[in-house]
Amino acid sequence: MRGLAGIPREALEDLLFQCLQGKLLEERLRRSDTPQVLSGATREIDLRGIAIARAMRRTRDGKGDLCFPGPLAPGPALAFGATPLEYLRHAARTRTSPASARSGGDSWTDLRRGILGWSGRPGMMTQVVAGAALAFARRDADRAALAFESFPALDSGGWHEGMSLAAAQRAPVLVVLAGRDDGDRRSTTGSIARAYGIREIRAPANDLASLFRVASRARRRMAAEGGPALMKLGLLSAGRRGALLPQLRKQLLSEGLLLPSEIDAIARTASAGVSQALSRILREGAPEPEDALVAVRMDSAPLHPWTRMRSPSPEGSRVPSKEPGAVHVH
């Protein structure tokens, strides 16, 4: 099946909006007048990550699918319902950011929407996502997990431990290997999938609608039958990356699913959201130093450095006394 066949019109409209939003955000972040506060933000949003993530079942109550955006962040997070403003807040480490400026990387966790974020060693999150998928399998829910990993993850023991467990437990997780495959390895995605006894999903590299359809089918099959699947998203040249969105637009027009005026309206909506987010982020401040002090456990209270308190003493509230038993409380 090729082109847009089999994809509902609403899903295509939605896919177009998501991809336009991602593309516009990328373009704005690449401009030379990007505010300094966003210097750490990504300069590349791979629309293929959005197309795959948008194929999953999303909710806002924490009962839908789960997505680890990994190296393709923030695209898949946006596809899972995060807003451009949330991403900009996270990138700028504002006090209002989803992780309250206490976590790095390009992704953060929002379990209500099904977003699992992390910035750490490649491969570790395949373990965590496999466990989430294991929970889905255990409860027989119509849920599946999606994890994007970079190819270096293949060289980590953690990735293989996660895949091994997911395969053995038939956990419904689609693992997408993305980016530059420059490791010194002879295995292919297909041979790895065969070694784990799992499905390999062949991705059409340069067709957003087909990617969406393939991922939708993989998701349905995982949720129904269980078991993980593996997909490879190789690097695209800048030219081919740039052609993805025009191609989707062309398909929509040529198949008569949307009028040019309708596409323009979707683009204006996406643009307005991105512009609003960019103007708003400039008005949001950095965290206060004491925002570092939050509970590290559910039942713990954060401790101030005692030397910075009004009445320095190791106890914070006690004046040292030479007389045993004499405790003075402020």
Binding site: Q127, G131, A135, A137, R138, G157, H160, G162, S164, L165
Partner: peptide, 25 residues
């Protein structure tokens, strides 16, 4: 499904436990 024999992969299954805990188990 509730007593899971794992591969010899302490990092892997501890990480998986974290994922399951995220999902309410």
């Amino acid at each position: 499904s509730r007593v899971i024999d794992t591969p010899i992969s302490e990092g892997g299954f501890t990480g998986a436990a974290a994922g399951a805990a995220h999902m309410g188990l």
